[in-house]
Write a protein that binds this DNA or RNA. Structure first.
Length: 635
DNA sequence: ACCGCCGGGTGCC
DNA sequence: ACCGCCGGGTGCC
C-alpha cells in the first residue's frame, strides 16, 4: 500500500471517518447480523490486493466529488474559511479536523462536500424530512443551478440545521411557493412567508376574523399550575404571562369561578404564539369553558374559547388590519390542526403513530405481509398499550423489571403488557418458557448490588465481598455451573419479579420505520419533541416524492446490512482494532465487487449498500495508512 | 436534547 | 457514601 503523503495524512486518524459516522447515525445497541457477517468466511489475503486497487479508485471518486480540485487548486474550507490545497487526502483530513473540533457537530461533511465543492454537478433534490407535519412543507424536486441552490441551502440551514440533511448525490432545494401559503399553511417563522401571506390575504375567505368564533383547544402544562379539581362547564379566563422563562408568549388559564386566582394551566404554545400577539397588540380578551375532564391529572383538558370584542376596523390603520387578519388566520389554522388529535392521546404517541402511518403509506413495498400486519395492528392497540410500548422503546433496556415501570399517563400497566405480549410487541418472562443465555444475563444485570450480594450470601462460599457489581455477577454465574443454571434462573426471576422487553422483531421493525421516515440514523422520536418545544424550527416546505429511495425490499435489506458493517468499522476504528478493520474492508470489498453497477442506476446512490461499503473501505484504508505511517515514524 | 434537571446506583481514584 | 461521579430517564407553559 502506498503511503500517500509524507506529513499530512498522519496528522489525524480520522480521515474519512467523519462521513462514516454521519452515515451510521446513532449506533445500534444490537446488530442483528453481527455474528453472521463476521463468521462469513472471506479470503482476506487475496481480496486485500483488490482493496488496494479499490481504494485508489475510491479516492479518485472522492476527488471527483470535490470537483475541480485537481492539482494544486485551492478551495475554501466552509468551516474555517481557510484556503486548503485541494489534493488527495488533504481536504478530507482538513475537514475531519475542522469538524471534530469541539463537541457539537453542526455541519455534516457530506453536505459540505456536496454544496461547496461540486459547483458543476447537476442537482437532484430529495426530500427527506417530514417530521414536522404540522407545517405544510414543500421541497420541490427538480434540477436547478447549484449556485442558486447553495445560497438557499445556506440561508435555511442557519435557521434549522437538520432540516436539510439531504444526503443525495447532489443537493436539495427548499422552496416556499405561493400554493403552500394560500392553502393556509401554518407559518412559524420565516419572514419571507409571512409577507407573502399578508399580501395575499384578500382572497375573500371569511376566516380572517376570530371575533365571535368558538375555538376548540386544550389546557396543557397542568403540572405547572396548581393541582386542583376541575369540573366540566367551569368558566375560565386567560391572562398573559410575559415573564414566563420558558415561553414569553405564554398564556395562563385561570378559573373564573374562584376569583381568577387559580392557575389551571396554559394554552398550547403553538396557539399562544399567535393569540398572545392578539392580546398584546389589539387588547383582545378571551373567555371560555371546560368541555370535559380527562382521567389523567396531567392530560390536556379540552376547552372552548372565544372573544366577544369586535375590532373596529375603521379606527385602525391598514397595516394593522393586515396584521390582525393574518394573526386570526394563523390562530384558526392552528386550532383546525389541533382538532385532528384525538383526546387522551399523548403527544409522543401521536407522533409515533403518525410516523408509522406515514411510512406505511409511502413505502409499503419494502415490508413483508407479516411486518405490515404488525405495524398496522399497532395502530389498533389500546392507548395504554401504545404508550407503554413507545415509552419502553425509547428507553435503553432491553429488559425492564415490571416493578420499575410506572407512568402517570398509563392507567393499567398489567393489561397493557398482556395486550402487547399477545400481539408479539413485547416479550415477558411470564410467558417466555426458557430464557436465552444472553437474555438471562441481561436480566441478571437488572439486580442491584444489594440483591446480588444477598444471593451470593446464600451460597456457603466465603465470597470475596468485592463491591463491584460485575464481580458479583460473574461470581454468581461461576458458582452455578451449567447444571444448576436453571435453579439460578429461577432464583433471579424471583428477585426481579416479572420482566419485559420489546420483542426483537418489533424492535428491528420500528428501527427500520424510523430510518425510513427520517432517512438518516441521527434523528429519532425526540426530533418531534424538539419541534414541539420550539427548540428547532424547520422551514415550511412540502414533500414531493418522485422516486422511492429503496425500490424494493432487497435493496433496503442490503443497505441495512451495509450499515451494520459500517458500524462495526466505526467501532473498530475507535478501538484501534486493525484486524477487525481489515475484516470490514474485506467484507466491503467482496460486496462491492458482487454488485458493481447497482449504485450507478439508483436515483439515490447514497442510500445504496455500495455507497456505504465504499465509505467503509475508504475510512478503513485511511486508518491503515495512518497506522503504517505511525509505525514508520516510531521505527 | 446538541440542553438542564432529577434521582438512583455506585464506589474506597 | 451524611460524599462526588456517572449515566439513564425525562421534557408537551
Amino acid at each position: 500500500m502506498k503511503i500517500r503523503s509524507k506529513s499530512n495524512s498522519n496528522r489525524t486518524m480520522l480521515t474519512g471517518h467523519e462521513s462514516l459516522i454521519r452515515l451510521i447515525g446513532k449506533r445500534r445497541r444490537f446488530l442483528p447480523n453481527r455474528q453472521s457477517l463476521l463468521s462469513d468466511p472471506i479470503q482476506l489475503s487475496s481480496s486485500l490486493v483488490k482493496v488496494e486497487n479499490g481504494a485508489e479508485d475510491l479516492s479518485e471518486e472522492r476527488n471527483d466529488n470535490l470537483a475541480g480540485t485537481s492539482g494544486s487548486d485551492k478551495v475554501t474550507c466552509p468551516v474555517c474559511g481557510n484556503k486548503v490545497r485541494g489534493e488527495e487526502y488533504m481536504i478530507n483530513s482538513h475537514l475531519d479536523a475542522c469538524l471534530t473540533r469541539g463537541t457539537k457537530r453542526k455541519l455534516s461533511q457530506q453536505t459540505l462536500l456536496q454544496f461547496n465543492f461540486s459547483p458543476r454537478s447537476k442537482v437532484q433534490a430529495c426530500l427527506t424530512k417530514s417530521d414536522d407535519t404540522k407545517s405544510n412543507l414543500t421541497s420541490d424536486v427538480n434540477e436547478v443551478d447549484t449556485e442558486e441552490t447553495d445560497s438557499i441551502i445556506y440561508e435555511s440551514s442557519s435557521s434549522s440545521d437538520n432540516a436539510l440533511l439531504v444526503n443525495i448525490d447532489g443537493s436539495a432545494e427548499i422552496s416556499v411557493n405561493d400554493d403552500t401559503v394560500n392553502n393556509g399553511g401554518i407559518v412559524n417563522s420565516p419572514s419571507l412567508v409571512s409577507e407573502i401571506e399578508a399580501s395575499e390575504n384578500e382572497s375573500g375567505d371569511l376566516d380572517d376574523d376570530i371575533s365571535g368564533k368558538i375555538l376548540a383547544t386544550f389546557i396543557v402544562g397542568r403540572k405547572f399550575g396548581e393541582e386542583g379539581e376541575l369540573h366540566t362547564e367551569t368558566n375560565i379566563t386567560f391572562c398573559r404571562d410575559p415573564e414566563n422563562t420558558k415561553d414569553p408568549n405564554a398564556i395562563k388559564v385561570l378559573s373564573a369561578e374562584s376569583g381568577c386566582n387559580k392557575v389551571l394551566g396554559y394554552i398550547p404554545r403553538e396557539l399562544a404564539e399567535h393569540l398572545s400577539k392578539l392580546m398584546d397588540t389589539f387588547g383582545l380578551t378571551f373567555e371560555g369553558r371546560i368541555m370535559s375532564v380527562p382521567e389523567h391529572s396531567h392530560a390536556a383538558v379540552p376547552i372552548q374559547i372565544w372573544c366577544q370584542e369586535k375590532i373596529p376596523y375603521s379606527e385602525i390603520e391598514g397595516e394593522k388590519v393586515k396584521l390582525y387578519k393574518s394573526l386570526c388566520q394563523q390562530v384558526l389554522a392552528t386550532v383546525r390542526l389541533s382538532e385532528e388529535s384525538p383526546p387522551g392521546m399523548m403527544k409522543y404517541q401521536q407522533n409515533f403513530c403518525l410516523l408509522l402511518q406515514e411510512v406505511l403509506r409511502t413505502t409499503p413495498h419494502v415490508f413483508t405481509h407479516d411486518e405490515k400486519t404488525l405495524l398496522e395492528n399497532f395502530l389498533l392497540l389500546s392507548n395504554d398499550s401504545q404508550k407503554l410500548f413507545i415509552r419502553l422503546y425509547t428507553r435503553k433496556g432491553p429488559w425492564f423489571r415490571m416493578s420499575n415501570i410506572s407512568y402517570a399517563e398509563i392507567l393499567d400497566h398489567q393489561s397493557a403488557v398482556k395486550e402487547l405480549s399477545a400481539g408479539g410487541y413485547v416479550c415477558s418472562t411470564e410467558t417466555t418458557s426458557e430464557l436465552h443465555k444472553d437474555d438471562f444475563e441481561r436480566v441478571l444485570n437488572l439486580l442491584n448490588v444489594g440483591e446480588l450480594r444477598e444471593m451470593l450470601s446464600l451460597i456457603k462460599k466465603k465470597h470475596s465481598q468485592s463491591p463491584r457489581k460485575q464481580d458479583s455477577i460473574s461470581a454468581l454465574l461461576s458458582s452455578y455451573g451449567d447444571k444448576s443454571r436453571s435453579l439460578l434462573k429461577k432464583m433471579v426471576l424471583e428477585k426481579t419479579g416479572s420482566c419485559i422487553r420489546i420483542s426483537p422483531a418489533a424492535d428491528l421493525l420500528i428501527w427500520r420505520v424510523e430510518r425510513l421516515f427520517f432517512c438518516n440514523g441521527e434523528q429519532d422520536l425526540s426530533a418531534f419533541l424538539l419541534v414541539d418545544l420550539g427548540i428547532v424550527k424547520y422551514p415550511t416546505y412540502n414533500c414531493v416524492i418522485t422516486d422511492h429511495i429503496f425500490s424494493n425490499r432487497n435493496d433496503l435489506l442490503s443497505y441495512e446490512e451495509a450499515l451494520e458493517v459500517a458500524q462495526i468499522m466505526d467501532e473498530s476504528l475507535e478501538e484501534n482494532n486493525s484486524s477487525m478493520v481489515l475484516k470490514c474492508i474485506a467484507i466491503s470489498d467482496s460486496r462491492i465487487s458482487s454488485q458493481t453497477s447497482k449504485n450507478l442506476s439508483s436515483p439515490f446512490p447514497c442510500f445504496s449498500a455500495s455507497w456505504i461499503y465504499s465509505k467503509v473501505a475508504l475510512s478503513g484504508v485511511s486508518f491503515l495508512e495512518s497506522e503504517r505511517t505511525m509505525m514508520q515514524l516510531t521505527c
